[in-house]
């Protein structure tokens, strides 16, 4: 990895340069919750000041800029017995400033699913390639457990990654684009002190995780506890509302529907994100539902995160952001669910 440092003033100039020719998305304070804490969202910004890099977490993950909740896959037109199709997946260049390591790791996981060699999704790939990503290190929020799932650091999948050293940023450069962007401002070569300070900040971050989840042997434990009553306990609480999957940075399930214009001359194939917790997720033609109960659906969500994905890609799908646990009105959250599962596993 190539490193440089950047004064905060120069970072501001860099963002302002990026703003000139890109749509820029950043963590923006969008209100306060019932306890008076700020709520942040990744939203388009027009000025550097709108970006709040001190955010702890965001209510929604930035996944929506890669996998929109709703997306027109193709438009088709009928005329005189003929038809033509129009597919557009080019997007304007975009930059996302201030993504945390967990969210960049989430993109790396999505890459494995959506940008695979055999059947890459052109819609996803075009967004991914046309998005300039500036990541940033941060002290973990109380409920984050990204460290437990190995998602607290990131070595690729971004253009630039910042670590705040007080008066300056320590910048990891991971692409030509990133290198060229830095060349437009006064980035400095790294001194020994810079490296030393960087490692000290990293060590501090590493030691400040409060929430820990043990995931070793989780795939096997999940298999052994397939019939466990703990799934009923948590499943009975589940509202089947899908909020967890909507905010999760790695959930990608979707459905496709046909929207026909009122005059029957045009149609659109519209993709819409779905969730395995929703009641019709496993309903098939003819009406049979393979997962009719809330507990079976909730269980399979955890199975995909911590077993299915591990089997396919040797790593969990979950990046430990705990957004699902935060939005869940019923209080269903991975640290507690997994702890319960492990308690079951230890037997009576």
């Amino acid at each position: 990895m190539l490193f440089k440092t950047l004064t905060k003033k120069d970072f501001r100039s860099l963002v302002e340069i990026i703003l000139q020719s890109n749509e820029v998305i950043g963590p923006k304070k969008s209100g306060t919750n019932k306890d008076g804490n700020p709520i942040h969202k990744f939203l388009p910004v027009a000025k550097f000041e709108e970006i709040d890099l001190g955010y702890q977490t965001t209510e929604f993950s930035p996944k929506t800029y890669f996998l929109p909740y709703k997306e027109n896959l193709s438009t088709y037109r009928f005329e005189n017995g003929e038809w033509e199709q129009d597919i557009r997946y080019r997007i304007q260049p975009r930059a996302i400033i201030g993504m945390h390591a967990c969210d960049i790791n989430a993109l790396l996981k999505l890459d494995k699913v959506m940008a695979r060699d055999k059947f890459p999704s052109p819609y996803y790939v075009s967004r991914r390639r046309n998005t300039f990503i500036v990541g940033i290190d941060h002290e973990p929020a109380e409920k984050c457990f990204c460290q437990s799932v190995g998602a607290d650091t990131v070595t690729h999948g971004f253009d630039l990654f910042l670590t705040d050293l007080g008066d300056r940023y320590f910048v990891a450069i991971n692409s030509d684009r990133g290198f060229n962007a830095l060349a437009k401002v006064d980035a400095k070569l790294v001194t020994e002190k810079d490296s030393h300070d960087y490692l000290a900040v990293r060590a501090k971050i590493q030691n400040s995780f409060k929430t820990k989840v043990r995931i070793d042997n989780l795939p096997n434990l999940l298999d052994i506890e397939f019939e466990s009553d703990m799934w009923k306990k948590w499943g009975n609480k589940c509202l089947s509302c899908g909020s967890c999957a909507m905010v999760c940075p790695t959930c990608y399930c979707y459905g496709v529907a046909e929207h026909v214009s009122m005059d029957f001359t045009k149609g659109q194939k519209v993709k819409q994100l779905h969730s395995c917790n929703l009641v019709d997720f496993a309903e098939v033609a003819g009406g049979h539902n393979f997962r009719p109960t809330r507990s079976s659906r909730l269980k399979y969500r955890y199975y995909h995160q911590h077993r299915g994905f591990v089997e396919a890609y040797d790593e969990p799908k979950c990046v430990g952001c705990n957004r699902c646990g935060t939005v869940c009105l019923a209080g269903i959250n991975p640290p507690e669910v997994i702890a319960d599962l492990q308690a079951e596993g230890h037997g009576p």
């Binding site: 969202k41 909740y69 509302c241 899908g242 909507m246 994100l273 929703l278």
Partner: peptide
């Protein structure tokens, strides 16, 4: 068949 939350989240609305 799902509840309003799905559409609400898909609009990026704060709960």
């Amino acid at each position: 068949v799902y509840p309003v939350c799905v559409e609400c989240k898909q609009r990026f609305t704060t709960c």
